[in-house]
């Protein structure tokens, strides 16, 4: 028979703080990131498969676009688009599926039994998703760079691209927040997530620059698609040779910065509202 060794247990009210301290926030946040990375390690086979399939997909796309040839003028723009697309695909899907999985198994409710506000945990999930997206995105980048270098080309690098890269990551966090919030209430919205990925693939300017699209499509893409302004800016810097402050395509630096902030703002507000609805309807743990 298993027994508990009686120790000085807590019987009366626990020591409480109405607002957790900064250390508790940091602890909870890093705890969530740590959990995400443990799950990433547990699913290493899946990551390995993605690290192979995504670069293959990229090379096949460039081949098809080049009518059976790897054309140099398509490789670099295509690579920049594909790395971004891989990133958003992985980040959104990992955040979404981890949330849905927790909901389906019922463990999500346990994660709500914390003194911390849920946004802390969502943020932790997002950071874990960003880190989890890196292996696939970096493998695409690596294969792309090797291909370009092998064909006698040069892979340019400019530290300025860190700004649009950050914009893509933050904008994607906003999108993931919206999708996770919708999942809390409407549950089976996998189709929306997958459809949105297809839309980003087409309308994000990953392979066809927005300038080559109809004006209305380009306008809506720049306005709504989290990766579109970022990809456009990266191409402008690395392919066009322009500086961050002198971007020639798109709506300029201000929109590259503002769009992810707006998307995160919408994501935070919407997630909070949908979470309230879920608490009211009792759908936090019901699938």
């Amino acid at each position: 028979m298993t027994t508990l060794t009686p120790t000085a247990g807590r019987t009366g009210p626990a020591n409480t703080a109405d607002r957790p301290g900064a250390a508790t926030y940091l602890n909870g946040f890093s705890n969530e990131v740590h959990k995400g990375l443990l799950n990433l390690r547990a699913g290493w086979r899946e990551v390995l498969i993605q690290m192979i399939t995504f670069p293959v997909f990229f090379l096949l796309l460039v081949l098809f676009m080049g009518r059976g040839q790897l054309r140099d003028e398509l490789l670099l723009p295509g690579l920049l688009g594909m790395v971004s697309l891989t990133f958003i695909h992985e980040q959104v899907n990992r955040a979404f599926w981890s949330y849905l999985g927790d909901m389906q198994s019922g463990v999500l409710e346990q994660t709500y039994l914390t003194p911390l506000p849920s946004w802390t945990l969502i943020l932790g999930r997002q950071v874990a998703a960003v880190v989890s997206a890196l292996p696939s995105a970096l493998s695409v980048l690596l294969v792309g760079v090797i291909t370009i270098e092998a064909r006698g080309g040069d892979m340019p690098f400019d530290v300025q691209i860190l700004v649009p890269l950050t914009s893509i990551v933050l904008g994607t966090c906003g999108l993931a927040l919206i999708l996770c919030g919708l999942t809390l209430v409407y549950k089976r919205i996998e189709i929306i997530t997958q459809f949105s990925m297809a839309v980003w693939f087409i309308a994000g300017g990953t392979f066809v620059p927005l300038d080559n699209m109809p004006d209305v499509t380009a306008f809506l893409s720049r306005l709504l698609v989290p990766i579109a302004p970022g990809i456009e800016a990266i191409r402008d810097i690395l392919v066009g040779g322009h500086s961050l402050t002198g971007l020639e395509t798109g709506w300029g630096l201000w929109w590259v910065i503002l769009q992810p902030i707006v998307l995160i703002g919408i994501g935070v507000v919407l997630f909070g509202r949908l979470e309230q609805v879920a608490r009211r309807r009792g759908t936090l743990g019901r699938y």
């Binding site: 009210p13 198994s105 346990q110």
Partner: peptide, 24 residues
């Protein structure tokens, strides 16, 4: 009203749920 303080008062095993991560 005092969610944070309340959460420190209890632990729960919920019905029909896994309650913990099976992958960990």
């Amino acid at each position: 009203r005092r969610r944070s303080a309340t959460m420190q008062q209890f632990g729960a095993v919920l019905e029909g749920s896994r309650n913990v991560y099976w992958t960990l």
